[in-house]
């Protein structure tokens, strides 16, 4: 190999026993630890557990179409009432559904934080704009509605693994492309997460360390934000390069063929079957919702 010598690259100029070998003088700083929770790895695992419905739960045993109908029930009904009693009852029902569906701590935690933050913001807004109790009630009503729907979504989608969800959509006559996109999106999720994490780690290794964290760690936040944005493009480019293979593979595996022929659809959906348990489940849910409305007429609060 004919290459110019590289003498100045030799690291001899720098001390190898670098920054500060002894942790003295860093007493305020705690040593880094490898943790099981509240770490990046944990967040990744929680996302996978949620996406792939690995925890089981009541709804995961039901026919996926029934779960979608159940979800639609809870997503639509709250909009037909202004009664705080009805909405609170629905909220409780949805909360029970969340518990029996075994929603993971990450998603649940984010939801609770979101709900509390919204409550706080409503109070502040009401105080500033001076709407009095009336506006607080109106805003609380909206919060209850959104909370109910969010919890129903969590319960439903945490119980549907990608295959069940896409098959249910296909069975409900959604376009084949949509159904496939859902399933392929889930398939790509772990790949994208790994790729993203790797690129972020690359930035961590190659960017200069922060001189200090700054007030309330603002420098850390800014660094994290810019890194995430910068890591996005390489991730998309690396993934896009690979999709060419995916598209060719889909073609050879008859994906286009299946879109024009019904035989594949019939085979794919043959396993879907609404059983007695599913009917009972839907009926009980409907009765409970009706019960919530009955409670509303019996005990009206601030109608």
């Amino acid at each position: 190999m004919t290459a110019p010598p590289l003498t100045p690259v030799a690291p001899a100029a720098r001390p190898v026993t670098a920054p500060d070998p002894a942790p003295k003088g860093r007493a305020r700083r705690r040593d880094r630890k490898d943790r099981d929770t509240i770490s990046v790895e944990w967040v990744k695992l929680e996302l996978m557990r949620t996406a792939y419905a690995t925890r089981g739960g009541l709804l995961s045993k039901r026919d996926p179409r029934v779960v979608i109908w159940w979800y639609l029930l809870f997503a639509v009904v709250p909009w037909f009432t202004h009664s705080v009693t009805v909405l609170a009852s629905l909220f409780v029902l949805a909360a029970v559904a969340v518990l029996v569906s075994r929603v993971g701590p990450l998603v649940l935690g984010l939801f609770v934080i979101g709900l509390l933050a919204e409550g706080f913001y409503l109070l502040v807004a009401a105080a500033i704009f001076g709407g009095g109790t009336e506006s607080i009630v109106a805003l609380a009503e909206l919060t209850l509605k959104l909370g109910t729907i969010s919890m129903a979504s969590m319960a439903a989608f945490v119980s549907l693994d990608p295959e069940k969800l896409s098959d249910a959509l296909l069975s409900l006559r959604a376009p084949a492309l949509l159904s496939f996109a859902v399933s392929y999106g889930y398939r790509m999720l772990p790949m994208l997460m790994e790729e993203f994490h790797t690129i972020i780690d690359g930035h961590r290794l190659r960017s200069a360390p922060l001189p200090s964290k700054g007030f309330l760690g603002w420098r850390v936040v800014v660094r994290l934000g810019t890194t995430v944005v910068q890591a996005f493009y390489p991730m998309m480019l690396n993934t896009a390069k690979r999709t060419r293979t995916t598209v060719e593979a889909l073609e050879t595996k008859g994906f286009t063929f299946a879109a024009e022929n019904d035989a594949g659809r019939r085979i794919r959906l043959a396993y879907l079957k609404v059983r007695l348990g599913d009917v009972v489940f839907l009926a009980v849910s409907a009765l409970l919702v009706a019960g919530a409305f009955w409670l509303g007429t019996q005990f009206p609060v601030l109608d």
Binding site: T17, D20, P23, D31, P209
Partner: peptide, 12 residues
């Protein structure tokens, strides 16, 4: 190189 990895960030 004499530095315990727990005491510094990966970047350092």
């Amino acid at each position: 190189g004499g530095t315990n990895t727990k005491t510094v960030s990966a970047s350092q």
